[in-house]
Amino acid sequence: MSPSARRSLTAAGALALAALVPTAPTAQAAAAPQLVIDTDFPDPDVVVADGELWAYATNSSAGGNVQTASAASPEGPWTRQADALPELGDWARTGLTWAPEVAAQPDGTYVMYYTARDTASERQCIGTAVSDTPGGPFTPVGEGPLVCPADEGGAIDATTFTDDDGTPYLLYKNDGNAVGVDTWIYLQQLTPDGLSFAGDRVELLKQDRPEEGGLIEAPTLVKRDGDYVLFYSAGFYGDGSYFTGYATAPALTGPFTKSDEPLMNTDNTGIVGPGGQDVIPGKDGDWLAFHGVLSEDPLVRGMYVTPLRWDGSTPSVD
């Protein structure tokens, strides 16, 4: 199952980065989501660095491990850049590098969390790599993957979140649908350098609705109006059943309550299978980056952006 990413800019980071991102259109000027990368660029993660946006995506048939593109604003134009992760860790084999997440560190460096095939377990697992610049090249670190629960299907779709007190966390999904078990979105505290864990994992949310197709994935966590808002994707990633939902909680570890209706699906956006989302905080409003299916055979998923609006802690893209 392809991952989604995701990935969140942090509550604290949003304040620091807000002035660097162009403003979102007003509600009166709302427009349909814009296709900004019209070639295969699935599971986009977007970070802001020195006023520039950097996007990272799942590998594609074009080659390389981590697709990368840059732009001055969410609406682009986006320029393709070199493979951000030319070499994988020794534990991984090439060809299945999914849903990268890049997070800026307090010392000015960047950590990438990438999903790849673990040669020992033959499951998808999450590893780490570091770089002094957002464009890389990133260098793998560690003798093995950071997280790899092989008996639970492995782990995919890493994303980061930093709480108001500065504590960093990693969210990820066990790839349970690969082995016929529940798919949980987990939260686990990171060490200050982002390269190892400082606490046990906590279950946040799992699949429990028919329309989810037996899985949820691609977590993105933000904090708005005192609540924690967890975006996720569900359904089959390769067709119109894929959608983006969200759940809210008054505390970081939950309990999270899913919304009654999806944030985005094929019917309410006109985009086939919108998912793999990431939130880009802006000066006067947030943006949402996500992918949509441009072709099912061969599978091509392009990158879209749209303003993300809030009514308290309730998001919308209308």
Rank of each mutant, 00 (worst) to 15 (best):
T253G: 13
E122D: 15
L263N: 09
S121G: 01
Q188A: 04
P307I: 02
R301Q: 15
A247L: 03
L85M: 13
P262C: 02
G285E: 00
A27C: 05
G135R: 01
T139V: 14
L230N: 13
L88K: 13
P100K: 01
A30Y: 00
L53S: 11
T167D: 13
K258Y: 01
Y169V: 03
K206M: 07
C125S: 13
D165I: 08
S295C: 11
D182M: 03
V300P: 09
G154M: 09
W54G: 10
N174Q: 08
G154K: 02
V111D: 09
A29L: 07
S4Q: 09
T23F: 03
D38K: 05
G235T: 05
T167C: 09
P210T: 07
L96S: 15
E203F: 00
G127L: 03
D43L: 05
V47T: 12
Y232I: 07
G238R: 10
A11V: 10
F290H: 13
A16F: 10
Y237H: 12
V272M: 12
P145C: 14
G108V: 10
N265E: 11
L215Q: 10
A19M: 09
G13M: 03
R117G: 07
L96Y: 15
S233T: 01
Y246C: 13
T191M: 06
D239E: 03
W184S: 12
T94G: 13
T109H: 14
A155N: 14
G180C: 11
V229C: 12
A19R: 11
P307L: 01
L170I: 11
V21S: 02
F161H: 10
